[in-house]
Amino acid sequence: MRMPYTLHPLTSLTAAGCTAVLTTAAGAWPLSLAVALAAVLLAVRAGAGQQVLVAASAVLLPLGLSLLMLHGLFFPEGRTVLAAWGPARVTAEGLAFAWESATRTGACVLVLLLFAFTVSTPDLVAALAGRGLPPQFGFVLASALTLLPAMAGRLERIRAAQEARGLVLRGGVLSRLAAVRLQMVPLVLGLIEDSGSRAEALDARGFGAPGPRTSYRQVADPPAQRRLRTTLLLITAAAVALRLVASWPAAGPA
């Protein structure tokens, strides 16, 4: 799971965020494609290739198909018509627009997923708290990431228990809706009840108390990585500024 070399979580977060913003600012498909490929390569090298690709395709395939249908067939601004059936016109500009949009989003999604699947959540939470972010943020992040994988098992237990009581799952939207309602109630109730006692436990363990906190976990942050982060942020800021200035006149009121 971990990268072969140890990156401070904030370094990988900065790198991923800046890459995504730079790709968006550049708005050039060759760069987007290069970034996407690099992200996939890094993910495979870090041993998270399959996870990243599965999560990315779940997002990108419907988006890509939707863009292709939308802009490939209907692009009133298009001038170079390649084919036409009734109201639908395949235009070169439309296809180019779909390709540009899809590669840009694809690059951003892959880079951010690479970060999400390679970062160590405890390190990230410790690093964020060390930077003065409210500890509540780290709690919500880490707690959600531990709760989510447990949900499949919980739903399965509920379903089994209900089937044992004679619940028969049948086709048909209405009966499935009714079954979903029966499953939701114990799930929601269980989660909310658990969170009630969890709140009491957290309060008793000083979580709600104001004032400075300390950290047991220590995350190494070499100076070279700090300089790298500063550099990345500066480059990204410059690129964004450049793009805003360059495009401002073109973006006058319609």
Binding site: R205, G206, G211, R213
Partner: peptide
């Protein structure tokens, strides 16, 4: 129900209450 669920080792779970109170 006692556990914070957000700490990845037993040692850190034990330290959770101390961290929150700013123990050096």
């Amino acid at each position: 129900a006692m556990l914070s669920t957000v700490r990845s080792t037993v040692a850190e779970e034990l330290a959770f209450g101390l961290e929150n109170r700013g123990t050096p």
